[in-house]
Design a protein around this nucleic acid. Structure first.
Lengths: 194, 194, 194, 194
DNA sequence: TCTTAACCGAGACGGTACGTCGCGTCTTTTG
DNA sequence: CAAAAGACGCGACGTACCGTCTCGGTTAAGA
C-alpha cells in the first residue's frame, strides 16, 4: 500500500504560511495599530512572499479582519450568582473589553465596514459575514445570561442596545471609562423596566 | 477723513481658495466617501494648487475634519410641546441624523481619532479639539431640552449615554434603523427612572 | 536532457525597463540638455513607472551619469603613421569630441561631481567611481600612443595635462574651437621638450 | 539755497537691500555651495522680500553670478623679479585659486553657462557678458606679465591656454593639485618654445 | 513741511519636480 | 507545483522652490 494522502488532507505548507502571516499581522496590529498592518510589513516580517499572502487573503482588508478576530477574545458569560449580579458582571466585562486599545480599534474599524469606499461585491459580502460573526460572538453571552434573568421572550437586541449602547457612547463619544456605578445604574434601570 | 482700511482686513485670496478647497472636499466626501477625499482629487477638482491646499490644511486629516464639519448640520432643540414629546422628537432627530450616510461616516471617523496611528502632537491636539467641538455641538440641544424636562441637576452625559448610546449601537453594531417605537421606549424608560 | 535554464539568467524585465529608461534619458539629454533629463520626463517618455526607475537608478544623478556614458563614445587610438602624426590625430580627435555639445555638457557635469552639494556617502562613492571610469576611458588611447612615441617612462598624466588641458581651456574658458594649427603647435611643443 | 539732492542720487534703500541680498547669497554660497543659494534661503536669511529680490536680480542665475563675482578676488600680477620668476609666481597663484573650493565651483558653473537649458535671450546675453568680464579679469595679469616677458607680439590666449589649461586639467579631470614643480615645468617649457 | 510715490516685508498663489510608500499583478527560480 | 523573491505599473503622499501676484506699511523725494 502506498503512502497515499487522505483526499481531504491539505498541503501542510498552506497552514504554515497562513499562520506565519497571521501572527505577523497580529503582532503588527498590536504594536502599531491598523496603520502598521501593511502588506509589505507583513510579508517582510513573516518571511512569506507577497504572492503567497495574496493566495490566503485576497485583500489587505481581509487580512486585517482576520488579525482583529485573532485579537478579540470572546467573553465568557458569568454562570453563577443572582441574575442581577450575573448581568452586571457581564456588562462590566464588556465595558472593560471595549475600553482596551485593540477592541477600540477593532470596534471602529468594523463599524466602518461597508461605509462608502467601493470594494467589490465579493469582498463586501465576506466582510459583512465577518461582522455578523463577530457580533454574534458578542451577543451569545448576553443570550445566555438574559435567558436566565428574564422570563418569557427576551428581546436580546433591545437589551443589548440599552446595555451596551451606553458603553459605546462613553468609549467612542465621551472618551471616558464606564465605571462600576455607571454600569450598575444601567443594569438596574434595565431590570426595573422589565 | 482718509479712506483708511479696516485694520483686520485679510487677503481675500485666502478666503477664496479656502472655500474652493472645502467645497470640492465636501462634494467628494458626499459622492465617494472618505476614501474619495484625496489631496490629488481635491486639488484637481478645486483648481487650487497643491501647495495652497497644504497652506490651509497642514494635513489631509484636517481637511477631512473641516469637510465633515461642513456636512454635519447641528440639530435644533424642539422648543414647544410637553417635555416627553420634546425629548422624543430630539431623540428621533438624532437617530435620523446618525443613520444618514455622511453622519455615519463622520461618526466612525471621529471615533477613530486618536486611535494608534502616530500623528504628531500638534495635530493630535487640533483633532481632539475638533472632536470636543463636535460633541459639544450635539450635546447642546440635549442640554436645552433636559434642563426643561428634569428638575434639579440633570446629568446630561449620563442621559445622553442612555438615550444616544442605543442609537449608536443600532447604527454601528446591528446596522438597523432606530424606529419610532424604539425611541419611544428609550425615552419612556429614561423618564421613568428620573 | 532537460530544458534547464542557464543559472545566471536574470529576469528579462530588468533589462527591458532599464534600456527603456536609458534610451529615453539619452534622447532627452541630446534634445534638451541636462535640464531636460527630469525624472518625470523620463518616466512619461519611457512608459516606465516612477518606482521602477528608482529601482534602477537610486538618484537622478546616477541616471544622468548613465545617460552621459551612453552618449560619450571612447576614442580609438590611431595605430599607424609616424609617432608625431598619430599623436596629432589623437589630439585632434579629442578636441573634436570636447567641442561637441554632449561632451561639453558631460565634461562640465562631471567636473561638478563632488563639489559642495551634499549627496550621501554612497552616492558620492559611486559617482567618484564613475568619474574615474570615464577618465580612464579617455586616458587609455593616450597610454597607447604615448607608449609608442616616447621611449622610457612616459608620464601620461603630465602629458595629458599639457596636451588636453589647453583644449579644455579653449572650450570652457575661451569658447573657441581648437583648430588644426593650434593642436599642431601643442603637439610639437610637447615633443620638443621630451 | 536748498539742500537739493544731486540728480543722479539713488534711493539709498535700493543699495541697502541689494547688499543685504548679496551678502546673504555669498554666505550661503560659501557654506553650502551652489545648491544652497535658493531664492527662499536668500530672502529668509537677508530679511529681504521676495519681490525686492526679483527687482534686483530677475533670475536666480543672475543672483548666483553676482555672488560668485563677489567671491572671486582678481589676481595681482607680480611686478618685480626676473620674467621667468614673475610668470611662475602668477601661474602658482592661479593654480592656488583654481584649487580653492569657491573658485572650483565658480569655474564649473561658469563653464556651464550657455550649455543647452533654454534661458531667454536677454539672460543669455547678460550671462555671456558676465563670463567675458570674469575671463577678462583673469586675463589681465597675464597680459601684464607676458608683455614684459616676451618681446614682440605675445599671443596671450595661446599662452594662457598652454599655461592655465593644464591647471584646469589637473583640477577638473585628475582632481590633483598642481604643485610647484609641475608649474615650473609648465613655465619653462613655455618659455623654451617662445 | 507735507504729500505722494517708490520701495518694502510678508506671504498667498499656481506650478513643476521631487523622492517615498503602499498597493495588487506579474514573472522567474528554488525546494 | 507551492513558495520565495522581487520587478512592475500605478496612484497618492508631503516637501521644496520657483516666479508671479496682491496686500498694507514705511520712508525718502520733491512740491
Amino acid at each position: 500500500m502506498t503512502t497515499q494522502q487522505v483526499p481531504g488532507r491539505r498541503d501542510p505548507r498552506l497552514d504554515r504560511s497562513r499562520s506565519a502571516i497571521l501572527s505577523a499581522a497580529v503582532a503588527l496590529l498590536a504594536e502599531g495599530g491598523v496603520r502598521a498592518v501593511t502588506i509589505e510589513a507583513v510579508t517582510s516580517r513573516s518571511g512569506v512572499a507577497r504572492s503567497t499572502l495574496y493566495r490566503h487573503f485576497p485583500t489587505s482588508t481581509e487580512l486585517l479582519a482576520a488579525a482583529f478576530q485573532e485579537l478579540l477574545p470572546p467573553l465568557d458569560p458569568p454562570v453563577d450568582g443572582a441574575p442581577r449580579d450575573r448581568l452586571l458582571r457581564l456588562v462590566l466585562a464588556q465595558a472593560a473589553q471595549i475600553e482596551g486599545a485593540p477592541s477600540m480599534a477593532a470596534l471602529v474599524w468594523m463599524a466602518a465596514i461597508g461605509l462608502s469606499g467601493t470594494p467589490d461585491e465579493g469582498e463586501r459580502t465576506r466582510l459583512a459575514a465577518l461582522r455578523e460573526h463577530v457580533v454574534d460572538t458578542y451577543r451569545r453571552p448576553f443570550d445566555a445570561v438574559l435567558a436566565d434573568c428574564l422570563p418569557g421572550d427576551p428581546d436580546v437586541d433591545f437589551a443589548a442596545a440599552r446595555l451596551v449602547g451606553p458603553l459605546l457612547f462613553n468609549a467612542l463619544i465621551l472618551r471616558r471609562p464606564s465605571d462600576e456605578s455607571f454600569c450598575a445604574r444601567l443594569v438596574d434601570d434595565f431590570l426595573a423596566r422589565r
